[in-house]
Amino acid sequence: MREFFKASWLVLASSIGFGLLLAFTYATWQPRILMNQRLAIERGVREILPEASEIRADTLSLSGSEGQPEELVVYHGLGPEGAPVGHAYIAAGTGFQDRIQLLVGLDRNLSRYRGIVVLSAAETPGFGDALRDSTIFRGQFIGAPADTSLVVVKGPDSDRAKTGDREIISITGATITSESATGIVNRRTKQVRPLLMQRLRTEGAGGGGTRDAHPDTSASNAAFTGAGKEGR
């Protein structure tokens, strides 16, 4: 035993010391990190649903891949009268280089898309990063039908890109990124839309069923649903 401690006291002492340092750092900065994530989502929801005066979060229970239950946060944009103006939810999947995370918006009737916002993507600089930087590709989702799968087509140039139809013209030089993003939107909407329709029929968007959505962000949901935009 003495030999063991003689040989390993430095590792044991360092592990305890470093562990405490890391725990202190994590505890100090974690609220700020969670607030940054929440603000990024809030900015995205407000970009998709600019007319919403209040945003409320709700959870949907989905059956994820491999049959595992999955809790999904759905953000309901409410007008001044409290009536829903649209809904948004996070969709994620694999892109060309890295994971793509999108915020997808639907209109109040769940019939058409209100648009998409990129929360995180690290696609090829100069090509796939147009997913985040260019509004032409993302603009095609505005008004596109949500009751059918969107399809990616290759176009000669972006002039053909128009809103309101189910065709999404791919980003030049980034077909895989375009197909990945569109597939992510299609898959998530196919999961979410029927459940959301059912939920809205029974409870009404943002009504009695609305509750704190995410355990980690529940502390800051008050600001999310608050009236003021200032300071954000």
Binding site: V11, S14, L22, T25, Y26, W29, R32, I33, N36
Partner: peptide
């Protein structure tokens, strides 16, 4: 490695926070 990993984690948390 242990020492470097701790300070890299702190740097990463700082960037994510600020």
């Amino acid at each position: 490695t242990l020492t470097i990993a701790i300070f890299v984690t702190i740097a990463d948390l700082f960037l994510r926070a600020y």
